[in-house]
Design a protein around this nucleic acid. Structure first.
Lengths: 159, 159
DNA sequence: CTGGGATAGTTTGATTTTGCAACTAACATA
DNA sequence: TATGTTAGTTGCAAAATCAAACTATCCCAG
């Protein structure tokens, strides 16, 4: 049974209760980078060790990451992404794209797609393949009782 | 001059310092829904009014939203998205997609693209148009000094 | 066997942030 | 005059955060 949220029922809010706490997404980012060890994640995110331990525990409980024993004796664990964790990559990509443009002076890292070119992500409609623009989406809500000034709303694409 | 971050220099981290605090993205979500008034945002997000006031102030300072006077006399203000705010839509879309799949039982809302079909977002390479899979990206870092186990990393697509 | 050095956390104690409820200010409406 | 609307602010207790030190297990060098 899922937790009852305070505001409008919404997958964005639900997602944020799982991965929206401080350091959570940065920990996931490090794991996507191939850094699976506690100390690496702590160093590369800058998170306090106690907070990081708490986040990793919560992310594991949420099914986003899994803890794997990589040594008995000194019992040691490392962290890996579950399927749910892997699917956070687009979230990180979207945040990175936005951050590159609006939160830093120069992109600290760039990415190259296997097609051989510089990678800039584009958000498209899976059906028609077109890049989605603001205003091209109509929202259909199941639950009522929330303000809804604009009849249509939602995602768009960039640049 | 931007703030110095604790961990690895990264646009994801930089983005999260601007919009990663509790309630911030939900406030932006409400504005994308066309709800521009303080009370609407408070009610629909469930955020405490004092926290919301603080977040709106921070988001305005970050250039994500702008405060517009819509009435003199009782001096009243409402909130709208800047260009930077508009470009957060893909972030919300990515979070919603993930949340629909992993954080709720049933999607509380669905979207219809102007092409006439159900909207499921797809993250593609702007150059070749193909949906990006995990492992298809190679990272090029400018700043050194951070652990980097996996030589390649980053975004993928879904479903 | 003594003295580091890793590694994955936990503990401690001071600081900051949060959430809630009530309150204010400035009008409009009946 | 009384009530309602709107956009916040205030006071305070409870919870979350941070930094630094500490623990627990091992391995290895001398």
């Amino acid at each position: 049974m899922r937790e009852e949220l305070p505001g409008r029922p919404c997958s964005v809010a639900a997602a944020l209760t799982l991965v929206g706490e401080k350091w959570s997404l940065l920990a996931v980012r490090e794991i996507t980078f191939g850094n699976h060890r506690f100390d690496q994640i702590a160093r590369n995110t800058g998170a306090p060790r106690d907070r990081l331990a708490a986040r990793l525990k919560a992310l594991e409980a949420a099914g986003v990451i899994e803890r794997r024993r990589y040594s008995d004796h000194p019992p040691r664990y490392e962290y890996g992404l579950t399927a749910a964790g892997e699917e956070l990559r687009p979230v990180l990509a979207a945040l990175r794209t936005w951050g590159d443009k609006w939160a830093v002076d120069e992109p600290p890292a760039t990415f190259e797609h296997s097609c051989g070119h510089d990678y800039t992500p584009s958000l498209t409609c899976r059906h028609c393949g077109a890049e989605v623009q603001p205003g091209e989406l109509t929202m259909h809500v199941s639950a009522p009782g929330w303000d809804q000034s604009g009849p249509s709303a939602e995602p768009a694409a960039r640049r």
